Computed example of a mutant assay.
Amino acid sequence: MVFQATLEDLSECLELAQLLWPSSDKIALEKELEQLLQDSNAALFIEKDKLSRTLGFAQVQLRFDYVEGTRSSPVGYLEGIYVREESRREGLAKRLISACESWAKVKGCSEFASDCELTNTESYMMHLKLGFGEVNRVICFNKDL
């Protein structure tokens, strides 16, 4: 069952967020998630099994700046989603994203967006399967000054 996480769920959200973003500093990530759980323009959704094990999570936020390929503001934005490997291909990502979309609609959004790395073919295929349409591809550059 998918439900919106609260501060009581912070440790479970942190565990899955670390699996999604392994290079992130644990303390900084925990602070960020704690802030998001208290922000009315953001939400975390989790699904637990019958034994209360957290199987997956999704982070959604409102974006008020321009979002590639959209025509409105704010836009509900899927910032991250992670489903434990043993729970994949069982519809969990679809349920999590559906909860995020419903939350965004309640917040007044008429569009929902996301992104993934060009090389993340598993995420790319999941997005397509769940009704997202590709709007752009970007390669980012930088250099030291």
Rank of each mutant, 00 (worst) to 15 (best):
S102M: 04
L33E: 00
S24W: 07
L10H: 02
L118E: 04
E34I: 00
L10N: 05
L7H: 05
L145A: 14
L37P: 01
T121N: 06
V60C: 14
M126R: 02
M1V: 14
S110A: 11
L36H: 01
D65Y: 11
G80I: 10
V75Q: 08
L55V: 07
L92C: 03
Q35C: 01
E8L: 08
A17D: 05
L62N: 10
L19A: 11
S40M: 03
A93R: 01
G131L: 13
L96K: 02
C13D: 03
R84P: 08
G80A: 14
L118Y: 00
E85C: 02
V135C: 13
E12I: 04
A5N: 03
E47I: 15
G108P: 00
Q18L: 14
E111A: 03
E101C: 07
N142A: 13
D9W: 03
I97K: 03
E12Q: 14
F3H: 14
L55I: 07
V60M: 12
T121S: 08
F57S: 05
G108H: 05
Q4H: 04
N41F: 04
F132C: 11
S123P: 00
V60D: 02
K48Q: 15
K31R: 10
E79P: 01
F57E: 09
Y66M: 09
D144L: 14
E15L: 08
D115G: 00
Y66V: 14
E32L: 08
S11W: 00
T119G: 04
S123H: 06
F57K: 10
V2G: 04
E111W: 01
S73K: 13
V75F: 09
G76K: 11
A5F: 02
D115E: 07
E8G: 07
L7N: 11
E79C: 12
A43C: 05
L92V: 15
D144A: 15
D9H: 14
D49V: 11
G91Y: 11
G76A: 12
E122K: 06
R84N: 10
E134F: 00
T70C: 15
S110I: 04
Q59R: 12
R95E: 15
T54E: 06
K105Y: 02
Y82K: 11
N142D: 15
S23L: 06
Y82L: 15
G91I: 11
L19D: 09
D65Q: 12
L29W: 00
L7R: 03
E32Y: 00
S24K: 07
E68I: 12
L29H: 00
M1L: 09
S114I: 00
H127I: 05
E111Y: 02
W103I: 04
V75M: 07
L19V: 08
E101R: 13
D144F: 09
R53V: 13
Q35A: 07
P22E: 05
A99G: 06
M125P: 00
N120F: 02
P22K: 06
D49H: 06
M1Y: 06
L14S: 08
G108L: 06
D144P: 09
E101Q: 11
E86H: 07
L16Q: 10
K94M: 08
E30C: 06
A99V: 03
